[in-house]
Simulated scan of single mutants.
Amino acid sequence: MATTTGIELKKSNIVAQKESKTLKGMLASADIKKRFDDILGKKSAGFISSVISVASNNKLLAKADPATIIGAAAQAATLDLPINQNLGFAYIIPYGDKAQFQLGYKGYIQLAQRSGQYKDFGAKTVYEGEIEYENRLLDKFKFGERTSDKVIGYFAYFTLINGFEKYLFVSIEDMQKHAKKYSKNYKGGTDTWGLTDFNTMAEKTVLKRLLSKFGPLSIETTAAALAIQNDGGVIRMDKDGNFDAEFDGETIDADFNEFDTSNTPTAVEDGTLIDAETGEVLTDEQ
C-alpha cells in the first residue's frame, strides 16, 4: 500500500501555501467568497470568474498583487458594476506591482441614472461660435451658432428634476494636456487616433468630470460611498475580507485609452466562458 512520506506532505503543504497566495487561490478562500456573496448574492460566482478573466488577459495585471486586484474588484461589486475593461463601467488598472480601482464614465452615468434625480445630461464637442463665457467665475455661458469646423473644446451639462443645472466646459488645449498626461496611446494633437476618436474620448472625460464633482449619484450604502471615495486608489482586501485603501500616485485615465470593444465571451483558466457584458458564467445552453 502506498503511503505519504513526510517529505511529500511537506511539498504538498508548500504548494498549497503558494496557491493560497495567488489570485485564484485567494478568491477560492471561504472568507473572500463570503464577502462577495454578501455583496452580490447569486451573481457572486460569475463576478469572481470575471475577475480571474480580466487578470489573466492582462500581462501587467497578472503580475500585480492579487490582494489589490481583489480589492479593486470588490469596489466595483459594491457598486454593482461589471469590471470588463471593454465596457467602461469600472476598471482594474495595473500600476506597478499593484492594481487600482477606477470608475469609468459609464459607471458614473449608471449611478446618475439610478439616482432618479436627472431630467437630462450629456456631453458635446464644441465648435467655434457655439459657446462663450458670460461669467467664467460662475460658469455662465452664452450659446451661439457654429461658425466653422474648428473644435474649441468640450461641454458637459446636467439638469435635475428639481430644476438645478450645472455646466462644465474644457478647452481643447486643456483636454490635450489631460490626454498627454493620462493616456498610454496619446502622443499629441488630435490626429493620433483621428479627430473623431479624440472628440469621443474627450466627451467621456468632461462628462465624467462633471458628474463626479457635482452630480448626485445613487449611493445606497456606506460601502458604496466608500467605493466612490476610493476611485483611483489602490485597495487591498486581506484574507478576512477587510479593505485597506491608499493613494500613492497617478495612473492612466482608462476612459482616454483604447480597448477592444468586442463583447466576445472570454474564457478563464478552467475553460469557463464569461459573458463580456454581465460577467455571468455562460452554460452550454446559452
Rank of each mutant, 00 (worst) to 15 (best):
F101W: 05
Q110S: 07
V151Y: 01
N199P: 12
L138D: 15
T196F: 15
N199H: 09
G144M: 14
K140R: 15
E132G: 04
F141E: 07
F198W: 13
I70D: 03
I70R: 07
S115T: 04
L160E: 13
Q100P: 01
N86T: 12
A77D: 05
E134C: 06
D197P: 00
Q113P: 05
K98I: 13
W193Q: 07
L195C: 10
I69N: 11
G194V: 09
F164G: 04
G116H: 04
T78H: 02
Y105T: 06
K204L: 10
T200Q: 12
D149W: 12
A202I: 05
L137E: 15
F164H: 11
S183T: 04
T192E: 00
A99F: 03
I92W: 00
N162D: 15
A123W: 03
E165W: 00
N185D: 14
K187N: 03
Q117Y: 15
G129P: 00
E203W: 00
D80L: 06
P94Q: 06
T125V: 13
Q85T: 03
P82K: 07
Y127R: 15
S148R: 01
Q100V: 13
T78V: 12
K106D: 02
D174M: 13
I83C: 09
Y105E: 08
K184V: 05
Q176H: 04
E165A: 01
G96K: 08
E165N: 15
Q117I: 00
L137M: 09
F155T: 09
P66S: 06
A90W: 06
K204V: 06
I172N: 12
G104Q: 07
L138A: 15
F89D: 02
Q117W: 10
Q113K: 09
I109A: 02
Q117T: 01
L137G: 10
Y182D: 07
G153C: 08
D149G: 08
G88W: 02
F141P: 01
L168Q: 03
T200C: 11
E134T: 02
Y154Q: 05
K142V: 12
E145T: 13
S115H: 00
